[in-house]
Design a binder for these strands. Structure first.
Lengths: 298, 298
DNA sequence: CTGCTTCGATACTATTTGGGTATGGCCATG
DNA sequence: CATGGCCATACCCAAATAGTATCGAAGCAG
């Protein structure tokens, strides 16, 4: 069978109409080129050129092959660059999990950066709890995840993206409601309110952190309704079913009927982190981590 | 850049999952295969395989390349066979001219044989006078032509396809009209009828042949209407505008209102011939000539 | 019609590249 | 810890490719 080199030679001769001229263009001397063309003809069992006194011209079969050869060479080139771009993580699918709070903090900026830095990567976003993300990462069905206030199991790497305090989320008609910027609300003032929380299994660390804050303020929070997603919790608060402690960035949700207030004691900031499995890291995941690192630094 | 051989090797290794196994399948020993794979990786600047203890597996870039490589190899194969089939005249366009009479004699059978013998050839049929065909053949805009009773100019080759006598074509109501199979009609009986003919410039040889037949029968045919196509001439006869001498195969047209009779003297048979330019003969034209030759012989 | 020019083909040599054999080294498994 | 399986490396030989010199055929001008 033939060879891409022979095809390149053939195209050069066909386009130049001269063997010698084409040899020059290929930085080659004339005789080997002549020989390669004849060899291609022998391999195919087809004569591709008419030889006459002042050059060569394509036979019908040659004209047909010229079209195919140009396509083939272009396709080969494209295949090479596709493989290279895939290896660099510039091409493909990126499966990114995220906790619901990330939608209101880091996720929009990160997605924008991905779109700018890796425009040919298809981003698949999945809203998942931290546990679901850890499981999917271990199973290889997720490339990276964004979790808040959760402890990734041993084999996972992590990158802190941001840290934010908890704030109180109150119904707007609540006696303690006040515009932002007023003095922090002493937590003890909420001792008699029902607290709206995630189910503990979904986010044990965050759940415990909130209960501990209550203890620190001298009371045991009374549990009210439960909600799996942050939007649900804020919605329940706006319906007057209780109060909640939520990440400060949830104030960006601007749901009518709720009010956010800083609390005292403030407690430790909640970390939002990017997590991934370093073993078998896909190139595109590595690029995501780079971008995220740059986003945190910049 | 890489090479189709390397691509074939790559595909074999990818499909086998083992270098050694693939080497066997390629009738090759393992070390050169190993080396070619590494060289392909070096050429692309991309690692295509993960090596582990019991074989190799594709990297993400490798998986991407595998798809493209399989396509490329198939396309290369296809390009080769396309060129070969084109060289053999099994593929392409065949521009065939024909005189209108051929429609009622040899053309249908020839077209059927072409469809069977060269199914991938696109036949372009053009109804043209002999002179138009000779001109188009000289100009290279026609591959072959079918003419009746015409003398091709010097550079053209010819193949006789059939020869047929002239018969009289009379209006059905004409006193001389009679069913086929009766005695031949003495031409002299038509001495007072207007003769419907082609314009002489369109088919001088046939025109002269008809006039000569009249002379032979002892009169000079009186010219009536003219028609360029055979169908037209027969139509004018059926309208009662005169009589005509037409190739015997025109009886196959079975136009109502006309009647065909053998004539006396019969004169020489009219040759219908395939003509073409032997210089720069296209492969597909050569195949047509072969088929036509077989059709005449068989 | 003859010499000149142009261009592809051929002969021969040098170098590169590809393939074979022997062997080393790594990783998983029992 | 030893063993087996498998890929990588080292080295050598054969084949293919490129370069130089030359030939031969076909148009063109004088």
């Amino acid at each position: 069978m033939f060879d891409l080199r022979q095809l390149r030679y053939f195209v050069a001769v066909a386009e130049a109409g001269h063997v010698g001229r084409a040899a020059e263009r290929l930085h080659l001397s004339q005789p080997p080129l002549s020989r390669q063309i004849r060899q291609l003809e022998a391999n195919l069992g087809v004569s591709l050129f008419h030889r006459h006194a002042r050059g060569v011209s394509l036979t019908e079969a040659g004209e047909r092959l010229l079209l195919d050869a140009q396509d083939l060479l272009a396709a080969a080139e494209a295949a090479a660059t596709t493989a290279q771009r895939t290896a660099r993580g510039e091409l493909g699918r990126l499966r990114l999990g995220f906790a619901s709070t990330a939608l209101y903090s880091i996720l929009p900026a990160l997605v924008r950066r991905l779109g700018e830095g890796l425009p040919a990567v298809t981003l698949e976003l999945r809203e998942l709890t931290a546990e679901q993300q850890f499981h999917a990462l271990a199973g290889g069905t997720l490339d990276a995840g964004i979790v808040i206030c959760a402890d990734p199991p041993a084999p996972l790497d992590r990158l802190p993206l941001l840290a934010e305090p908890l704030v109180a989320c109150l119904p707007a008609q609540h006696p303690l409601a006040a515009p932002a910027g007023t003095t922090p609300l002493p937590l003890a003032a909420l001792r008699d309110e029902p607290f709206i929380l995630f189910p503990r299994v979904q986010a044990p660390a965050l759940h415990d952190r909130i209960l501990a804050l209550g203890q620190q303020a001298g009371f045991t929070p009374r549990l009210g309704q439960q909600g799996v997603q942050m939007q649900t919790i804020v919605g329940l608060v706006s319906a007057g079913l209780g109060v909640a402690l939520v990440p400060a960035s949830m104030a960006g949700l601007r749901r009518p009927g709720v009010c956010y207030r800083a609390i005292e004691p403030a407690g430790l900031d909640l970390p939002t982190e990017l997590v991934w499995q370093p073993a078998g890291l896909r190139p595109v995941t590595a690029r995501l981590i780079e971008l995220a690192r740059a986003a945190v630094a910049g």
